[in-house]
């Protein structure tokens, strides 16, 4: 539990508030993360990670990928996801665009998992633009129920 004052945590909260303000101005901005070259590039694609007793589930928000380009690799507790968001046909003239918000390109994102997983039993499903990676926990990482003896 965090019971001391951490100034950096305050900065983080401020940063988040600013982000929300910017989101109100341009709602498209951060919905799916961004493909950029800058320091923000690590935030694409956005992920939700959850766990239950047996598995860790990683949901990756990545519509429009080339299915052949998706690479999911696991080394110890490191999960690496790489792929390519397919570009539109290239023969469209730049002046023919009314709007261009989606972006495209290659990405890599690495995630440190909270425990080691059975790397040969990992499955990945790409459906409706969401990649779901299911990582079974190693037996040593599963929680054990401890019986409480009452005297």
């Amino acid at each position: 539990m965090r019971n001391f004052w951490d100034p950096f945590r305050e900065f983080e909260a401020l940063y988040r508030e600013m982000e929300q303000l910017f989101d109100q101005v341009n709602p498209v901005r951060r919905i799916f993360g961004r493909i950029t070259d800058g320091p923000l590039s690590a935030s694409y694609p956005l992920m939700n990670v959850g766990e239950d007793k047996d598995n860790v589930y990683v949901e990756v928000l990545a519509p429009g990928l080339n299915p052949e380009s998706i690479e999911v690799t696991v080394l110890n507790d490191q999960l690496r996801i790489a792929g390519e968001k397919a570009p539109l046909k290239t023969d469209i003239k730049p002046e023919a665009f009314y709007r261009c918000e989606r972006g495209s390109g290659r990405f890599i994102r690495t995630l440190t998992l909270p425990m080691e997983v059975e790397s040969d039993k990992v499955t990945a499903d790409y459906k409706n633009g969401i990649l779901l990676v299911t990582l079974p926990k190693q037996a040593a990482s599963k929680p054990k129920q401890i019986a409480v003896k009452v005297n």
């Binding site: 919905i31 799916f32 993360g33 935030s43 956005l46 992920m47 939700n48 990670v49 959850g50 766990e51 239950d52 860790v56 589930y57 949901e59 928000l61 995630l111 909270p114 779901l132």
Partner: peptide
């Protein structure tokens, strides 16, 4: 609806 509750990391 989503598959699991994102109890470790919640980005979207």
């Amino acid at each position: 609806t989503r598959v699991s509750e994102p109890n470790l990391l919640h980005e979207f």
